[in-house]
Design a protein around this nucleic acid. Structure first.
Lengths: 233, 233
DNA sequence: TGTGACGTATAAGTCTGACTTTTTGTCTCC
DNA sequence: GGAGACAAAAAGTCAGACTTATACGTCACA
């Protein structure tokens, strides 16, 4: 998905990042750069670079004469894709998945409405293609093929919205959808109603009907919330 | 707001970050660590740490034998508060302000609805207090005092939603509101209708009326969109 | 006993220089 | 003109010495 483990400091982050986000070091814990460097068998320079990255994510704070202290969860940069990945890979996964699904429920309908206004002809075509791909793979346990088209569909909607902030949530939505297929619910074929909704969203966007695109997408996200029992069914 | 300029590498970032986000180095530009270190009169170690931070924000990519190349804007971590601040401080400000306001219009109504369901008694009290503070400073060019309560109001709503992703947008919303008062529109006293809406949101949240809180907040954000001419008036 | 000033130990911060590794561009040779 | 070898360039890594800020303990004084 991105660029993991690039260089020694990246390898350190691959271990330390998940450990911190998983709560292995509770907020206020103090780490010492020298000790960490010894533990990971890297030089202090490399360790310092890793700490700087964690600091830029607001996971830790480095202070003289004190050390590297872990910050409380409320201060983390929870929108950092790296942080999201670390949390999705750890024990925090269910909680993180719920937070992200709620975020989706807020963002995607609005994004779909904007997409209806701003999507290019090419994006409309892509959207239709994705929706058709979902239909084609909606039966017969072709979950992986279905997932690919589902992810592409939502990514196109977010991009076509014309808002860069929305567009950058494409990766996050991809993680959520993939997580749903691979780890959580979804052992059966996808809900036919959901598939139909995607097709209708594609139609609405193509027709430039913002209100309908927004409402239909809202129905999709409501379904996602229900799957996680966030809404009453 | 946060912790700027901590250490030498922080000072380098304060200059280099805004320069990159402002587009002074177009995507694909190649920087050399050694040259940068000379230019900023710091050691290579310090420069490397700064580059690592920029890399974690996906602003640049560092590759052997090539150098530090600036990534296209579409790949930046636009949710990083630091990146947002840099962009708001530069020529990209109007565009960034629009993106964020659209994001607000998606997130805040949903957050308000959740807040109506999850807010504690204390949060309800805070909310009412903020709304009253807005009313009290809504006339007579007390823009600064009004702003403080406005920011606090929205921060409480986002926090009370109980969703960590929403809560972390508090700082972003604060920047947008402050930007509106200090740089853009808003030379006159705030729109009385908007003030009333805030009061009614506080009431709805206190009453646990999620639908009404969401709808009223949507009206607030629609107003914000109209101010920037994003919606037709 | 409480409080203030002072000194010291500590851990991060910085700098330097040497060395390694990877990658790219080029040059030769077939 | 293409394949392979070579060389240069820039990031990456490491070790060691030094600087700086600061938390904490100590001691004198009220």
């Amino acid at each position: 998905m991105s660029t993991p483990g690039r260089g020694l400091h990246g390898h350190v982050l691959d271990t330390l990042g998940p450990a911190i986000t998983a709560g292995e070091y509770p907020p206020g814990s103090v780490l010492r750069t020298d000790e960490l460097a010894q533990h990971f068998e890297v030089s202090r320079s490399v360790m310092r670079e890793a700490v700087r990255v964690l600091e830029s994510m607001h996971l830790v704070e480095s202070r003289r004469r004190v050390g590297v202290t872990v910050r409380p969860k409320a201060e983390w940069n929870v929108y950092d894709p790296q942080v999201i990945r670390w949390r999705l890979a750890g024990a925090d996964r269910p909680h993180q998945l719920r937070s992200l699904t709620v975020l989706r429920s807020a963002v995607e309908p609005v994004a779909a409405g904007l997409a209806a206004q701003h999507a290019t002809a090419e994006q409309c075509a892509e959207l239709t293609e994705c929706a058709l791909g979902m239909v084609a793979n909606s039966r017969g346990h072709r979950l992986e093929e279905y997932l690919v088209h589902d992810i592409a569909f939502h990514r196109v909607v977010l991009t076509a919205s014309g808002n860069e902030m929305f567009a950058r949530l494409g990766d996050v939505v991809a993680e959520v959808l993939a997580g749903r297929t691979h780890h959580e619910v979804m052992f059966e074929d996808p809900d036919p109603a959901a598939v139909t909704l995607h097709v209708r969203v594609a139609e609405a966007v193509r027709a430039g009907d913002a209100v309908r695109a927004e409402e239909l997408t809202r129905q999709i996200t409501v379904g996602a919330l229900q799957e996680l029992d966030i809404l009453a069914p």
